[in-house]
Structure formats: C-alpha cells, structure tokens
Nucleic acid binder design. Structure first.
Lengths: 143, 143
DNA sequence: TTAAGTACTTGCAAATTGCAAGTGTAAATA
DNA sequence: TATTTACACTTGCAATTTGCAAGTACTTAA
C-alpha cells in the first residue's frame, strides 16, 4: 500500500544520454545522501533524514523526496507505528542504485580520508564485492 | 607536463562520509558530463565540452573545470596542436571513476529510454563487464 | 594586417538554496 | 479533557548559484 506524490514536478531530461538522464534525477548534493540513508542506514522517515550528519534543510529535503518519488526511485507508505509518520522506501529502481553507490564509496575511500566504517566496508568490498552487493540487495528487497 | 589550476576554490567536505565527499566534488548536473566526454568521447578541450549535446554555459564550464582540477580529477596540459588550445586530461583519480560512470549507465539504461549507442554499450556490459572496464582503463591510462 | 579561433571573464536577471519561522495533524502527558 | 510534544511538512526571505549575452585576451590562419 503506497500513496502518490502530489506535486508532479516534471523532470526535464536534457538529452537521451544515460548519464545526463541520471543526473537529471540525482545530480545534486543531497539526493544520493537520502538514498544512502535508506540503503545503508535503515532510515525511512522524514525525521530520520533530517537528523543526518550533513544537515539538509527541511524544504530541500521535502523537494528531494518529492522529486525522487516522481522519478520512481522511492515510494511513500503508511508507517506501521504511527499515523503521524510517513514511511519512505526504495523502489526496485532505487534498490538498483546499490552498485552505483558502492562504486562511489570505493572510489572515495581510495582517494579521500573517510570514516572508519567506510574503510571497513571498502575492505569487505575488496574481499567479496559480489557477495556484499547481493546481501544488500536481499536485505532491501525483502523489507 | 601540466600546470596547476589557479583559482584555489576550497572544496568544503560536509562530513567524512565517502558518498558525501564524492558529491562535494561532482554532485551537480554538469561535472560528470564533462568527465563522460573525456572518458567515452575522447574530448579534451574547452571547446569540445562546450559543443556537447546538453549545452553547458561557458562560465559554468570554466567553474567546473577549475573545481575538478582542484579536486585532482583532471589536469591541464599544453595542447600539441596549438598554443591557443588547452588540453584537459583525466588524472588517475579521474580514470578511477570509470566504474562509477559504468554503473550509472547500466542503471539508466535499465530504467530509462536512452540512445542506441548506450543500449549497445549496456549489452556489451552484460556480456563482459570486466573486459569492457579493463579496455576503458587501458585506453585512458596510455593517453 | 585583418579576421577568425580558442579559452576564458564579466554583468545581470532568474532560479535555487539555506535558514528561520510557521502550519496542521497525530500522539503523549498532566 | 486540556495541553504539550512529535512529525511532516510549507512559507518567506536573504544569499548564493545558474544561465544567458556580451566582452576580453591571446593565438593562428588568410
């Protein structure tokens, strides 16, 4: 059971290039952080996303959730705990972004200073990337 | 032989999360398109990038080239053909973005309408992703 | 010597972002 | 039952960024 995103913000695609099309959806400083929170941290409410380390503004978060919803990357659901809460979930299209996020993590870990959790995750990836990705897929699909 | 980017635009990292750090570098609608042009289309001058399908503005292009240079993703060189031209190249850090771009292409091809070249590329990936990536790496490293 | 090519910079209007403060509904508490 | 708190937003406004048009400076071709 899910309900639709009301503000049908038309996503303009600048060309039929796959990279350009992808950037038209998540080409900004915040969208992939929301997806990261859902994918790796089990976050799934507006309040969860607001509390992330990078401190997204409330209006920007609302705009990004709306756009990601229109793009079919996330969906809105009733929260089992409370009517006041909204549950956001990654759709299959959103779950399919796992390999993209994983490669970004690997690249960034190689070339920047990152927190220890990321270093450990990257070490896991070097051992068994396919396994790690499969586990992530399975965990998100069943939820 | 390469020369440095003058405008030392400090790149602010919002956290030590690898995703966030990466987005601080290329989290916008244009940077990855420039990298795409260098990676897949053999483009390497300011004019080349300007002529891309998505029509980036001249000032935005200059700003992005400068930022990518400061981040160590690209480098500036003397052009062999003309003193009027500047040759941009991907650094090793930039070349290492191949898997990220490849995964974005694969995701976008699966979920959107894209041009036929992208569809063919995605078909190649399904056959032999490792081989395709290795070929890309080799092609960029030797140039 | 003049015109065209190349890589930018500058000025300004329009759009987007970021902060602070609200709003409306639901749940918890006194 | 009344009141406060939690939650998911929206609104207003200043500051920043974008996008377009025009200009600048150096190089090359005619």
């Amino acid at each position: 059971m899910y309900f639709c995103f009301v503000k049908e913000k038309k996503i303009i695609h600048r060309s039929d290039c796959p990279i350009s099309t992808a950037l038209d959806i998540f080409g900004d400083k915040w969208s992939l952080l929301v997806i990261r929170d859902m994918m790796f941290k089990g976050k799934n409410t507006y309040g969860d996303f607001l509390n992330s380390e990078e401190k997204i503004a409330t209006n920007i978060l609302a705009a990004r959730l709306s756009l990601l919803g229109c793009a079919g990357v996330i969906s809105k659901h009733k929260h089992p705990d409370s009517k006041a809460k909204v549950l956001y979930k990654l759709t299959e299209k959103g779950i399919d972004l796992i390999p993209v996020l994983v490669e970004i993590i690997e690249w960034s870990e190689k070339h920047h200073k990152v927190h220890s959790t990321a270093k450990e995750f990257a070490a896991q990836l070097r051992k068994d990337k396919k396994g790690v990705i499969r586990t992530l897929f399975d965990g998100l699909k069943k939820s």
